[in-house]
Amino acid sequence: MTQKEKVAFVIDTLENLYPEVPIPLDHKDPYTLLIAVLLSAQCTDVRVNQITPKLFAIADNPYDMAKLTIEEIADIIRPCGLSPMKSKGIYGLSHILIDKYNGEVPADMSALESLPAVGHKTASVVMSQAFGVPAFPVDTHIHRLMYRWNLSSGKNVVQTENDAKRIFPEDKWNKLHLQMIWYGREYSPARGWKLEKDIITSKIAKKTMITELLKNHKQ
C-alpha cells in the first residue's frame, strides 16, 4: 500500500464514518474556545465541558474574566488540573486581549502563541475551528494514529504535524484533524486497543503485509 493509497483510504474511511464532526469542546465564540482549549491541557474534554459552564456563567468574555482574581479562577477550574498555571494564563491573556485587541481574540497564529499559557496546539485549534484558517493541531490521538498508520515516525508532535501537513490536502486539514480525534477515541485508543476493531489500522497493516510478501516473492 503506497502512501498515496493510505492517505486516500484514510480520508475516505473517516468521511464515511464522520460526515459531520462536532468540535469536542463546548464553546460559543473564539474566546470561549480559546479558554476551553487552554483548560484541556492534560485534561479530558469531558471534564473541561463539565467545568466551563461554571466558569462561563460568571465570565464568558475577557472583560468579565479580568474582573476575577487569579485565585477565583483557580478555584473554579481546579478539577481540570494545573490550575495555578492555567488560572494565571486565563487572567493574563484576558487583560492582554482587552489592552491590545479591544477584547477580541486575534485571528493570527503568532499573536495567539504570544498569549500566556497558549501553546502552538491551542493556537492551531483556535485558528482552525474559530477562524477557519487551515491548521493541523496534533493531540495524543492524532500522534498515535499517524504512527500506527505508518504516516509519521512518531518521534514528536512537531514532526507528526509536519508530516500530516505534507501528506494530507490543505483543504482537508480542519475537518480531518477532528475526524481523527473521534476515530482515535472510538476505534484506536491507547489503552484496550484491539487491532481487529481498528478499521483503518488493520486494513493498512494487512495491505502492507501483502505488499511486502509480494515484493519478497519477486526477489
Rank of each mutant, 00 (worst) to 15 (best):
M1Y: 10
M1F: 08
K6H: 06
V10Q: 07
D12F: 08
N16W: 04
L17P: 04
Y18G: 11
Y18W: 14
V21G: 14
V21H: 14
P22H: 13
L25I: 11
L25N: 06
L25G: 09
D26I: 15
D26G: 07
K28N: 09
K28L: 02
P30W: 12
Y31I: 08
Y31E: 01
L34N: 00
I35N: 01
I35G: 01
V37K: 05
L39C: 05
L39P: 03
S40K: 04
Q42M: 06
C43L: 00
Q50R: 11
I51D: 00
I51V: 15
F56T: 07
F56S: 03
D60R: 03
D60M: 02
D60I: 03
M65W: 10
A66S: 15
A66W: 06
K67P: 08
L68F: 04
I70V: 15
I73W: 04
I76W: 04
I76S: 00
I77K: 02
P79A: 02
P79V: 06
C80D: 00
L82Q: 08
K86C: 06
K88D: 05
G89Q: 10
I90V: 14
Y91N: 08
L93R: 01
L93Q: 03
I96K: 13
I96V: 12
L97D: 01
D99N: 14
D99L: 12
G103A: 03
E104Y: 11
V105F: 04
P106C: 01
A107C: 07
M109I: 04
E113W: 02
E113S: 02
S114Y: 06
P116F: 05
V118E: 04
T122W: 01
V125W: 00
D139H: 04
T140F: 06
I142R: 03
L145P: 06
R148S: 00
G154D: 02
G154R: 06
K155V: 07
V157D: 05
Q159L: 08
E161Y: 05
E161V: 09
E161S: 10
E161T: 10
A164E: 04
R166K: 13
F168Q: 01
F168D: 00
P169F: 10
P169S: 03
E170P: 01
D171W: 10
L178A: 14
Q179L: 09
M180Q: 15
M180C: 13
I181G: 07
I181L: 14
P189D: 06
A190Y: 14
R191K: 14
G192N: 03
L195M: 15
I199F: 09
I200N: 09
T201W: 08
S202H: 11
S202D: 14
K206A: 11
K206G: 01
T211I: 02
T211A: 13
T211V: 05
K218N: 07
K218T: 09
K218M: 09
